[in-house]
């Protein structure tokens, strides 16, 4: 679609959408949000870019093939599920690592649920973009 307004607006919107998608991803641990919805919002940014500037530019902006993103996400999620095996827990059990934790404080909490959610984020982002970009190119 050749529209100057859309192209200019997309430049700002895409950035906002991507930041918002990360916010949703991180917020998802204790509040509404998470990898799935985050991935959907993140995909919207690239879809908007594809509509405004064409699929070739959207693919260039992605740098990697969307299928590769999806499969990487699947691998990340799978590994996150397998980590608890080392401590003898059930598949998908949440394992926590507190970086720089001092007495009383939690430092920077890192966990396998976050890793799993990141995997879901990438799977959704990659899968949606695979479908939408392919359909956009067909038409």
């Amino acid at each position: 679609m050749k529209s100057l307004i859309l192209r200019v607006a997309t430049r700002y919107l895409a950035a906002l959408l991507l930041i918002f998608s990360l916010y949703l991803l991180l917020r998802g641990h204790n509040e509404p949000g998470g990898g799935f919805i985050g991935g959907l919002v993140g995909a919207t940014a690239f879809v908007l870019h594809a509509i405004a500037c064409g699929t070739a530019e959207a693919r260039a902006a992605l740098r990697v093939q969307p299928q590769t993103i999806a499969v990487t996400g699947l691998a990340v999620a799978l590994v996150a599920g397998l980590v608890p095996a080392f401590s003898g827990d059930a598949f998908l059990t949440g394992e926590w690592l507190f970086l720089f934790a001092e007495d009383g404080g939690k430092g920077i909490p890192l966990s396998t649920p976050l890793m799993f959610d990141t995997g879901v984020y990438l799977v959704v982002l990659g899968a949606i973009l695979t479908l939408v970009l392919a359909m956009e190119e067909e038409i």
């Binding site: 499969v71 699947l74 799978l78 599920g81 397998l82 095996a85 059930a90 598949f91």
Partner: peptide, 22 residues
């Protein structure tokens, strides 16, 4: 106990990743 339930699921997912890479 729970791992014998989950391996029939994990193997195809892992295979999918490997098959995609190759």
């Amino acid at each position: 106990m729970s791992w014998i339930l989950v391996t029939p699921l994990l193997v195809p997912f892992a295979t999918a990743i490997a098959a995609f890479l190759l």
